[in-house]
């Protein structure tokens, strides 16, 4: 316990004790108070001391506020650094990093409670996927060729649902020269038609597998 910190600690305790005694004397002994004269009468020096103190406080103050706010963030960043660089935040160590389930994109359209208005590119993609799923399901459950499955799809004999049959038929999408009104109706009806088609494909496959 003879290090510089220990010496400084003892010295400061002594200074503190002396300061406390002097303070108590100033507070409770009026004669002492009158005996102690303020050492400087120069007002410029007083103002300079105050300005320096105020500047110091103004500089440090914002850092105190900012540092408190960013402390937790820094700790998280340090923890992330221990993980794989450039990868997603692992979050809490108690949990497996979250990854989406297969079919998330379709889920947003088929299982959404609210009507979704999708851009034409996405609608075409979903229609293409459902059409391909329908063809492959027919091939799988009927043990036929792809051409036969495609022909059944075009004739619409693979399902009892006329909406589903029309949805996956070639050219079942909106015409390029269709009117704005038709295009709007198609856009609004799309999720419902896709949902019915998905159900039809799933039930067709289920029936085929049980046969």
């Amino acid at each position: 316990m003879t290090g510089p910190i220990a010496i400084a600690r003892r010295l400061l305790v002594g200074v503190g004790a002396v300061a406390l005694c002097l303070g108590l004397l100033v507070l409770f002994g009026p004669p002492v108070e009158s005996a102690i004269r303020w050492p400087w009468d120069d007002e410029l020096l007083l103002v300079a001391f105050f300005t320096a103190a105020l500047l110091l406080a103004s500089v440090i103050g914002p850092f105190v506020l900012i540092d408190d706010g960013s402390q937790n963030q820094n700790q998280n960043q340090n923890r992330n650094r221990n993980q794989n660089r450039g990868n997603a935040s692992p979050g809490a160590p108690e949990r497996v990093p979250s990854t989406p389930t297969p079919g998330r994109e379709l889920e947003r359209v088929l299982d959404s409670r609210w009507p979704a208005s999708l851009p034409p590119v996405r609608r075409r993609r979903i229609r293409r996927r459902l059409r391909r799923a329908a063809i492959r399901s027919i091939v799988r459950t009927s043990n036929c060729s792809k051409e036969t499955a495609r022909e059944r799809l075009e004739r619409g004999v693979w399902t009892d649902d006329p909406v589903a049959a029309a949805f996956v038929r070639a050219g079942g999408g909106p015409d390029s020269d269709s009117s704005r009104l038709r295009s709007l109706v198609e856009r609004i009806r799309f999720p419902r038609r896709a949902r019915r088609t998905a159900r039809a494909v799933l039930s067709r496959t289920e029936e085929g597998e049980h046969r």
């Binding site: 389930t101 297969p102 079919g103 998330r104 994109e105 379709l106 889920e107 947003r108 359209v109 088929l110 299982d111 996927r129 459902l130 799923a133 399901s137 949902r195 998905a198 159900r199 494909v201 799933l202 496959t205």
Partner: peptide, 9 residues
């Protein structure tokens, strides 16, 4: 869900 069911299919 329907979306997941289609993905599985």
């Amino acid at each position: 869900s329907l979306g997941r069911g289609v993905a599985r299919l």
